[in-house]
């Protein structure tokens, strides 16, 4: 009973980490940069979803679609304003710029959305089913399914579609890609839009189980980055697998050893895992060609 409830909790929370971490993966494989405001992008998805669906009373599918579109737009802004100006000069300042961008967004939301955490109503987040004698919300079962489906979709897109292949070509050699007729800037911008939309989706999915507020994404963003590194940031399957594993570790440690040890044990495992597998669970060693 203790184990089953820990597994269900762990898989649901773990796939959230996985979804946000996939966002790190997408921009990394295309441009070798990551967006450190992913946690804030997740929050943005939840806040916009709440605003459209609850405050304005739109139907949920429309509200979700609009929220995701605006999250993607935020990704474009991040890339244009916080990454491109630095990355094209060969500077690493995008690292700090995206962190700063996230903090700015958190505070803008604090003043516009308000200071109080709000509840995101959802039927799926309230309907309870029993599995092996443990109560589970339907949404908790849907989240891992969505996470795994998106992972498979990303794998397929990168391996078998023209756009996907074009995106991957960019990271290998920008000039060659450009000569082959690939719009490099557009490709990188697209990867950022996908990445923030994935984080936004994570925000929308977790909102009914959590509460919506301006700093809800901070800790998720940090853990998701740990997950991305643990999984091997260049592999979509590795990242999602690492997310699920990390969620499971957190939940089982809490269940069997007590919550005092959760963070200590979980992060120690991350460090040990990286020492043993420096490229992450499914990542490949980056070969530097001279």
């Amino acid at each position: 009973m203790l184990l089953i409830s820990a597994i269900v909790s762990g898989l649901a929370v773990g796939s959230m980490y996985g979804l946000i971490a996939l966002g790190f993966h997408v921009t990394y494989v295309v441009s070798n940069t990551v967006n450190f405001s992913q946690g804030s992008s997740m929050m943005l998805g939840a806040v916009l979803g709440y605003t459209f669906a609850v405050t304005l009373g739109w139907p949920l599918p429309l509200a979700a679609a609009m929220a995701l579109a605006l999250c993607a737009l935020f990704g474009l802004v991040v890339e244009r304003a916080l990454v491109r100006p630095f990355a094209e000069r060969g500077s690493n300042a995008w690292l700090m710029a995206t962190v700063a961008g996230g903090i700015v967004l958190d505070n803008v939301v604090l003043f516009t959305f308000g200071k109080e955490p709000r509840a995101f109503p959802s039927v799926m987040g309230q309907t309870r089913v029993e599995i092996f004698g443990t109560g589970v919300y339907v949404l908790q079962l849907i989240i891992p399914v969505v996470g795994i489906a998106i992972t498979l979709l990303l794998r397929y897109a990168f391996a078998h579609t023209r756009t996907g292949k074009a995106l991957l070509a960019v990271v290998q050699n920008k000039d060659a890609a450009r000569l082959m007729g690939i719009n490099v800037r557009a490709a990188i911008a697209l990867s950022f839009a996908i990445s923030t939309a994935l984080a936004g989706l994570a925000g929308l999915l977790i909102a009914p189980l959590f509460s919506v507020h301006s700093d809800m994404g901070t800790l998720f963003g940090i853990k998701a980055f740990a997950v991305a590194i643990l999984g091997g940031i260049s592999s979509a399957s590795g990242v999602m697998l690492a997310g699920l594993l990390y969620g499971l570790i957190e939940a089982t440690v809490t269940a069997f050893a007590g919550s005092t040890y959760t963070q200590i044990v979980a992060f120690t495992i991350v460090i040990v895992a990286l020492a043993v597998m420096p490229n992450g669970i499914l990542g490949r060693a980056a070969t530097k060609k001279v």
């Binding site: 009973m1 203790l2 409830s5 820990a6 909790s9 649901a12 929370v13 959230m16 977790i206 189980l209 959590f210 809800m216 901070t218 800790l219 998720f220 939940a251 089982t252 809490t254 269940a255 007590g258 919550s259 005092t260 963070q263």
Partner: peptide
Amino acid sequence: IEKFQDADVDVVPQLTRLKE
């Protein structure tokens, strides 16, 4: 005695321990 964090989405593991 169980502790939890501000950002914990799920407190079921802690509560299950108390229940058991």
